[in-house]
């Protein structure tokens, strides 16, 4: 049986842990609202661009001269997995779920005889992926220097990916991130980003649209932009998911700490009473002996 003092110290320690988890929960709730608003604000641009790229892609027939971003390299040997994680922990299984999905895909591709390489975004994915695939990481992007990943970061990531693509380092790229469903549910999601899967063309209103310059030139210019937007969208989803996961995890932690405190307090009170009783018995026994 732990001594009274030990119990008291233990209770205090759990209490301060609870304070931390409670604070983190509230911070996450506030940040979640912001991240959600940002994700929502980015939607008009993404849908419009997808519409335009879709309608353009449906007009252009794939040929030798088609932009490589749309047509691909003609091979599917080397697969790049772009894994977007958060920089901070304290968000439950959020990061490990994304990493798990990526590893699953990687093993599946290796079993098919393909080569798998990784490009990592964010800090939390590095260690677990390096443990399983120590030599497969060909690049990473550090987001720890900025408060929240924005379009500038998405641009930088896309640029690096395009450089790797042009250098022939990979044929197909998939993006892994946590899709935000609700504060309670975040889905690890895979999305092919290179070659660009043509979005479904919006129903055209039958009007003849003029293009300046021609369709193919516009498409060639829009594809990298579409890639950037996709990555930007993934970063925003990720940010919202992280906060959602963090909020849920911290809510659970706070509740667990509360239960632990209750249990310890009961134990503390019992031992205190036992000590008092023993003392009383001793005094009475002493008095009777006289």
């Amino acid at each position: 049986m732990a001594s009274l003092k030990e119990l008291k110290l233990r209770i205090n320690s759990v209490k301060s842990t609870q304070k931390i988890t409670k604070a983190k929960q509230m911070v996450a709730a506030a940040k979640l609202r912001k991240a959600q608003a940002a994700a929502e604000a980015a939607r008009p641009y993404a849908t419009r661009l997808a519409d335009v790229v879709g309608s353009l892609a449906s007009r252009v027939t794939l040929s030798e001269s088609s932009p490589r971003l749309l047509a691909g390299t003609g091979k599917d040997q080397v697969h790049l997995l772009v894994v977007a994680n958060s920089d901070r922990g304290l968000c439950g299984a959020f990061n490990s779920n994304i990493v798990k999905a990526a590893k699953l895909k990687a093993h599946e591709l290796t079993a098919q005889g393909k080569t798998v390489v990784f490009y990592l975004v964010g800090r939390k994915g590095r260690v677990p992926i390096r443990r399983d695939f120590p030599k497969a990481i060909i690049g990473s992007f550090d987001t720890t220097t900025v408060r929240e990943a924005g379009f500038t970061e998405a641009e930088a990531i896309a640029q690096e990916l395009l450089a790797l693509y042009d250098a022939g380092k990979f044929d197909i790229a998939h993006l892994f991130f946590g899709k935000f469903r609700s504060a309670l549910v975040q889905e690890p999601t895979v999305q092919q980003i290179v070659p660009v899967p043509a979005p479904k063309a919006a129903v055209s209103d039958g009007a003849v649209v003029q293009y300046e310059p021609d369709e193919e030139t516009i498409l060639a210019e829009l594809l990298p932009r579409y890639l950037r937007t996709q990555i930007f969208g993934a970063l925003l989803e990720n940010a919202a998911s992280e906060q959602g996961a963090s909020m849920t995890a911290m809510d659970n932690a706070t509740r667990n700490a509360g239960e632990l405190i209750k249990k310890l307090t009961i134990q503390y009170n019992r031992s205190r009473q036992a000590a008092i009783t023993t003392e009383l018995v001793e005094i009475i026994a002493g008095a009777e002996a006289l």
Binding site: V52, A207, V209, Q210, Y211, E212, P213, T217, I218, L222
Partner: peptide, 8 residues
């Protein structure tokens, strides 16, 4: 009332 048109 401009005709449908797309440009960079």
């Amino acid at each position: 009332g401009h005709a449908p048109f797309t440009s960079t």
